[in-house]
């Protein structure tokens, strides 16, 4: 279920402070955060965050389109495995059988 509008977007408070500080310092360095649950706010646009995915900090360059999404959406926690040789395997099978 979607979050009630009257509550406003959820953000961990310390992110605002962190973002402000990095804005003030002017250097464009990665802000490491663990708060994957926080909504991306308009004041984060242009900053680069390192969003923790349980193993490392995935750099996320926040653009205007990302507003309203959560940080966690941009830092996948699972590695995707696929069968890369699927097509070859399918072709090889009749020959082997």
């Amino acid at each position: 279920m979607a979050r009630s509008v009257w509550k406003g977007p959820f953000v961990d408070g310390y992110l605002l402070k962190k973002a402000e500080k990095s804005r003030a310092s002017g250097r464009n360095e990665i802000i490491k955060i663990w708060s994957r649950r926080s909504t991306i706010l308009p004041q984060f646009v242009g900053l680069t965050f390192g969003v923790y995915n349980g193993q490392k900090f995935v750099p996320v360059n926040v653009s205007e389109d990302m507003i309203g999404h959560k940080f966690g959406e941009f830092s996948p926690t699972r590695t995707f495995h696929s069968h890369s040789g699927d097509k070859r395997a399918v072709r090889a099978k009749p020959a082997a059988a």
């Binding site: 653009s63 389109d65 990302m66 999404h69 966690g72 959406e73 941009f74 996948p76 995707f80």
Partner: peptide, 11 residues
């Protein structure tokens, strides 16, 4: 838009 954004739903 979702795909270009690189968010989970896009992936």
């Amino acid at each position: 838009r979702l795909m270009d954004l690189g968010c989970y739903r896009g992936l």
